[in-house]
Nucleic acid binder design. Structure first.
Length: 825
RNA sequence: GGGCGAGUGGCGGAAUUGGUAUACGCGGUGGACUUAAAAUCCACUGGUCUCAACAACCUUGAGGGUUCGAGUCCCUCCUUGCCCACCA
């Protein structure tokens, strides 16, 4: 017998699978389809890490299981190739990003191959390929033509040290993650996508798909829908009106001031001459603060009085108008009424000695006293007081009645606000898809005609962003200068590129038809493959990539371009694998586990895959334990020995020597295992699927080495089933042992998933627990379906029970069929 | 501050509708094989009491509750993880 050595078998089978193309997904195949999608990687120079390995291995387990279960499985892989790390790498090493991407993808392919993934490589692509980004550009133009892509002046993050515009994701805690400089804001004209138009749809759509509840609630949270009212406050002795958004219109009687964001457009108009200087000083001081400084001063709420007053529409009271930089210009109307029932407002008003009264009291009398004495700021719902005709109403009733009252007078409207902002879609960087727009003096921004797509990213000498914040593309005059597609006059190309979220917003659709040069994907193929059945990815993409791609898809659905309203029928997120020391893996800490190193070290891909499946539930963050590999290797080795032993010395014995009890044990073990593993994979309980296989193997192993004789056919069929159950997890050793055991020419991965024989699932005899007052006292072995009477008699005859129950009165007997009997004394 | 989770041996973690808590694996101890080591195999491995075995009692972050019976359900508290955060 050869020793189990992964090196001898893994590369051999990987090559064979590639040559035979056994993992191809077939368009329009009559079998039911199953699309198993894992997030495609960013091909960085560092190669794959354990996080990739977890995601792709578990995706592969499901893909293989579904394939064996009769599905036409599509398990694709591509590369999210545009983005900053590659650009930075190219700048630093003075090589082209195209070359860097090429090199990195070669490494990735090699590494992914060594994991033994059942990917359909014929459908692979990278987002930086012009044949791909032609369609990213085309899809962008559909947004543009629908009025959902627009330009606006917005503040971008600007690093004054690097002299470059930054993407949000490069700003960590208000600093540029690379150089740690405090980030400033710079006003630039930018492209935005109107994701806010889809805010409600993005929430509602979640109820039609099967997402992990945590993921759905994070998206809902991020979108941040809040219902309230927009209320009109007339400025005293002026024709100016201020619109104020509030979710607490029930507290309007206690409005003690109006507070505007410093950037509010009406600031200039309402500031009295006598207050101009103070306001100007305040604006300068608040503008010079970076985001992080504003956050640092959470408790110190600064502000300035404008000199003007507003009229509270509910009671005609005159209240002062202030400016304060804790009010955000981007949310609601950029104005609030200051109110003692809001903790931030209360602090602000106290700081600036603005007189405030309460209008809502808690139901709890002790609490109410504290509110009245000013000891407590009450921000919850309660009962209205000091509120004229609305006194005595509960907050929720008052909200609708006061709103209606003001709506009737045309002083308020019902309004829904979202935290979600429009998606800033411009990047002033080189390594991204050029935005396919031409700016014409007469016609403004014009779409590049379809037949001129793709707008190919030109090669440049210098990939660095320019000092004025423009993309390096702006330096190439020959590329920038073009003609207007509408009038033919000289015009200039847009020089911004798209964010790296663009290519990943629709990539799953391209897997359905990766070569198409007429359309982003053929409709018939979309109809066949949509939607993605299961999407597995990192939790960190919940509010960016996952939300963005749902938005794109919903838009495409509205345009009639895709058949389903949602892209992903189900979404799960895998947990992070930490370093062995329990902290996040990082090069500087030296706790990085390199999966390819593990494979090369001699444990092999199968032991690694099993370890990943076994170490913890897939969605749990857990520390990597290198020693677990010893255990998973031993497990595979035991199976190797068992199968080879059986094949090499199966000895035929005469019928009378067979041990029926042992045979039954083998059959019940294997059939229970089939049920358990099938169920566990369906529920993604990979760790218990493995432990069940270990347990079963231990039983089979012992039986094999006992002197009990078991029929060859029973061993043969049981081992075949066992290998099939293992195949999704450890595809190489399963394939090898399958061929050793069966001499078949067909791959185990194309064989049928085993079905349990129910007749072996139930036992004739079962263990029944005897409890006294709920406490375990003894076990009984009884036939299945024994009646209460029989069990009770048997229990009372039990020596131990008899001793305890002597001289005691049984008040009650609780009987659970086939499980337990409990005497209450 | 808000939202969503999680607390079980030395460690990662099991535990159907509430029904023998600690499966499986790691680590540890003892043993077999070996000149020796590695590998492999066997036995033991939550705590207290006990020379030991049997038995008994205790044990799922803390405290209370519901129940014949609670890791599981309810309440209060503590600890901790992730995401968001001056969002009116």
């Amino acid at each position: 017998m050869l020793r189990y050595n992964p090196k001898n078998i893994e590369v051999k089978w990987q090559k064979k699978w590639q040559d035979d193309k056994i993992y191809l997904a077939i368009d329009f195949d009559p079998r039911p389809k199953y699309v198993m999608l894992t997030e495609f990687p960013y091909p960085s120079g560092a190669g794959i890490h354990v996080g990739h390995t977890r995601e792709y291995t578990l995706g592969d387990v499901i893909a293989r299981y579904k394939r064996m279960s009769g599905f036409n499985v599509l398990f694709p892989m591509g590369y999210d190739a545009f983005g900053l790390p590659t650009e930075n790498y190219a700048i630093k090493n003075k090589i082209s990003p195209i070359k860097a991407t090429d090199d990195n993808i070669k490494i990735f392919e090699q590494q992914l191959l060594s994991l033994g993934l059942s990917i359909d490589w014929d459908r692979s692509f990278r987002t930086s390929d012009p044949n791909y980004y032609k369609w990213t550009q085309w899809l962008f133009l559909q947004f543009f033509k629908a009025g959902l892509a627009y330009q606006d002046e917005t503040y971008i993050n600007w690093c004054p040290f690097c002299k470059t515009g930054l993407a949000n994701e490069e700003v960590v805690n208000g600093r540029h993650e690379r150089c740690d400089t405090l980030v400033e804001k710079k006003l630039l004209k930018q492209w935005l996508l109107k994701i806010t138009d889809y805010a409600d749809r993005l929430i509602d759509g979640l109820s039609t798909v099967d997402y992990l509840p945590k993921i759905a609630s994070q998206q809902i949270n991020w979108i941040g829908r809040s219902e309230g009212a927009e209320i009109i406050f007339q400025v005293d002795e002026s024709d100016v009106q201020i619109k104020v958004f509030s979710t607490r219109i029930d507290t309007i009687y206690s409005a003690a001031c109006i507070i505007l964001a410093p950037e509010h457009p009406l600031v200039d108009k309402i500031t009295l001459i006598t207050h101009k200087q103070a306001v100007k000083d305040y604006l300068i001081s608040s503008q010079s603060k970076s985001d992080i400084e504003r956050q640092d001063e959470k408790r110190d709420k600064t502000g300035v009085f404008t000199g003007s007053y507003a009229i509270n529409p509910i009671n005609q009271e005159k209240i002062p108008i202030w400016l304060a930089d804790f009010i955000l210009v981007g949310y609601g109307t950029g104005a609030v009424f200051g109110d003692i029932h809001d903790e931030r407002d209360a602090v602000f008003m106290e700081n600036h000695h603005i007189k405030a009264t309460y209008s809502v009291l808690p139901k709890d009398k002790e609490k109410a006293k504290k509110v009245m004495s000013g000891e407590l700021v009450f921000s919850g719902d309660g009962i209205l007081v000091n509120s004229g005709q609305f006194d005595g109403l509960t907050s929720s009733v008052a909200r609708s009645e006061i709103l209606q009252f003001l709506v009737d007078k045309k002083l308020a409207i019902k309004k829904v606000n979202f935290k979600l902002r429009d998606w800033i879609f411009s990047r002033q960087h080189y390594w991204g898809e050029p935005i396919p727009i031409i700016h014409c003096v007469d016609h403004g921004p014009v779409a590049v005609p379809d037949d001129q797509l793709p707008v190919v990213l030109p090669s440049v000498d210098n990939y660095e962003p320019t000092e004025n914040g423009q993309s390096p593309l702006s330096m190439i005059d020959s590329w920038v200068n073009t003609v207007c597609p509408t009038c033919g006059k000289p015009a200039k190309r847009e020089t911004d590129t798209m964010p790296n979220w663009a290519g990943s917003s629709w990539y799953y659709l391209r897997y359905f038809d990766p070569q198409n040069d007429q359309k982003f994907a053929d409709r018939k193929k979309l109809d066949y493959w949509q939607a993605v059945d299961l999407y597995l990815g990192g939790m960190e993409h919940t509010t960016l990539h996952l939300l963005y791609s749902r938005f794109w898809h919903q838009f495409l659905f509205d345009q009639g371009l895709v058949p389903t309203p949602e892209p992903y029928a189900a979404r799960r997120g895998q947990g992070i694998i930490l370093g062995p020391d329990g902290t996040k893996m990082s090069k500087s800490k030296g706790n990085v586990i390199d999966p390819t190193e593990v494979i090369r070290s001699g444990y092999g891909a199968d032991s690694l895959r099993i370890a990943i499946a076994f170490i913890a539930p897939y969605d749990l963050t857990t520390a990597w334990n290198p020693e677990i590999l010893g255990g998973t290797y031993r497990f595979l080795n035991r199976l190797w020995v068992l199968v080879h032993n059986f094949v090499e010395k199966q000895n035929y014995v005469i019928a009378s020597e067979f041990d029926e009890l042992s045979e039954k044990k083998v059959l019940s073990t294997i059939n229970k295992l089939i049920t358990k593993v099938t169920d566990d994979i369906e529920k993604m309980n990979f760790n218990t699927a493995i432990s069940a296989q270990m347990e079963a193997l231990n039983i089979l192993y012992k039986l094999n080495y006992s002197d009990k004789k078991i029929k060859v056919e029973i061993w043969q069929s049981s081992l075949e089933s066992f290998i099939k159950l293992l195949a999704p997890f450890a595809p190489h050793i399963a394939e090898e042992l399958w061929h050793v055991l069966t001499n078949s020419t067909q791959s185990v991965h194309l064989s049928d998933w085993p079905k349990a024989d129910v007749s072996y699932l139930t036992e004739d005899k079962i263990t029944i627990v005897v409890q006294i007052n709920g406490k375990w006292r003894a076990n009984l072995t009884m036939p299945v379906n024994s009646q209460e009477k029989e069990v009770k008699n048997e229990a009372l005859r039990h020596e131990k029970i008899a001793i305890i129950l002597k001289d005691k009165t049984i008040n009650r007997v609780i009987f659970v069929s086939d499980k337990l009997i409990n005497f209450v004394i």
